[in-house]
Design a protein around this nucleic acid. Structure first.
Lengths: 192, 192
DNA sequence: GCCATAAAGCTAAGGCTAATAGCCTTAGCC
DNA sequence: GGCTAAGGCTATTAGCCTTAGCTTTATGGC
């Protein structure tokens, strides 16, 4: 048999394509194998943990991708401009890959590698918050606030919860202003 | 055969018990049937659409429950007090039923009944926002902001995303302040 | 150039799930 | 007393994940 030249990375690539095209429910080993031109059990040579591990790898990859996207977006901005760029980039990523973003919570629960990816993302937030002079505990609360806001907006948007006619871009604008003002008045923050 | 005395409501009850105890992944027709003391196919007599419909019913029930919880919490409060009560109640519900809350996005996509439940929830938000004099389009943006924030915080909390030692209650306090201030300065809002 | 070995593929089989089809029994009503 | 409808059942099909064990391919050392 001609080798398919598979690798864990390639398997995750196929998984992401499947999710993007058909949603998280469509992520089955059978479908990935078909896409890769391989029999289903062969996948275990590359993803030993089976379906749960594949979901885990997909989540880690997605968070890392998102982190790169966010880091690139805030580059060259600081303070309010950085917050605005961050929120816009977050929403843009979720809008560009709605099913992938929605699939994130499908990862198995306590996972060190995914936690590490989350920390890398949060480090981008910390970098933005340093512009406001926030460090230590208050930076943690502020980072959580940023993340909760960005995630909540992205999550509800991709889930189709915003059915009314009003433009979601304007909602994001309002949300950004609230956060920017909130950070300016954050305990321990310093002015520009 | 002695009748099991099942009903759609009872099936959803069992489903919620299962989710609360073991998570959304454990919600299978086989498990529900075992719990109800019935063979799997018998469930189709009560939930004709099978597993997708059961997930849908679970989501509707949960959103309605949450809505009741929120409505009760804001009762007797207005403006900042109402916002604080709302956010606290939202977080409390998600903390009390973390797996149930996490299972919400599993509902099948475009569903009128679930949309209607979402509208009932949003009506509670609109009621709170009327205390700030917000109506029309700006109320919609403000409601989305409230919901995104509450959902984002609840979602990340139940997902275990907040690993650091800092108290999440204090995070919620900070978040509440940001929102309260944001609403005070909202376009079209009037003072107390 | 050949051979050993590890990696990467395969088939086969077992066990789980959802879902459909068709049958039987109970409960309640006329 | 019998009809009807609802609520059970078993049997079956189809699809999935997973493990076990075999076969082939590629590669690296001699």
């Amino acid at each position: 048999m001609a080798r398919a030249g598979l690798s864990p990375t390639a398997v995750v690539d196929h998984a992401l394509d499947l999710i993007d095209a058909q949603g998280a429910e469509a992520l089955t080993l059978a479908a990935v194998a078909a896409r890769a031109g391989v029999a289903t059990p062969s996948l275990y040579k590359h993803v030993a943990g089976g379906l749960p591990e594949l979901r885990r790898l997909v989540a880690v990859r997605t968070v890392d991708d998102l982190t790169d996207h966010l880091a690139a977006a805030v580059l060259g901005h600081s303070r309010d401009g950085a917050v605005a760029a961050l929120l816009a980039a977050y929403a843009e990523y979720a809008t560009r890959f709605p099913r992938r973003y929605a699939a994130l919570p499908q990862a198995p629960d306590p996972d060190p590698e995914l936690t590490a990816a989350g920390e890398r993302l949060v480090n981008v937030l910390f970098a933005v918050l340093r512009g406001y002079g926030l460090e230590g505990s208050e930076a943690v609360h502020a980072a959580r606030t940023l993340r909760a806001t960005a995630h909540g907006f992205a999550s509800l948007t991709t889930a189709g919860a915003f059915q009314l006619a009003e433009d979601t871009d304007l909602t994001l604008e309002r949300l950004t202003r609230v956060l920017v003002d909130g950070l300016a008045g954050w305990p321990g923050a310093r002015g520009a």
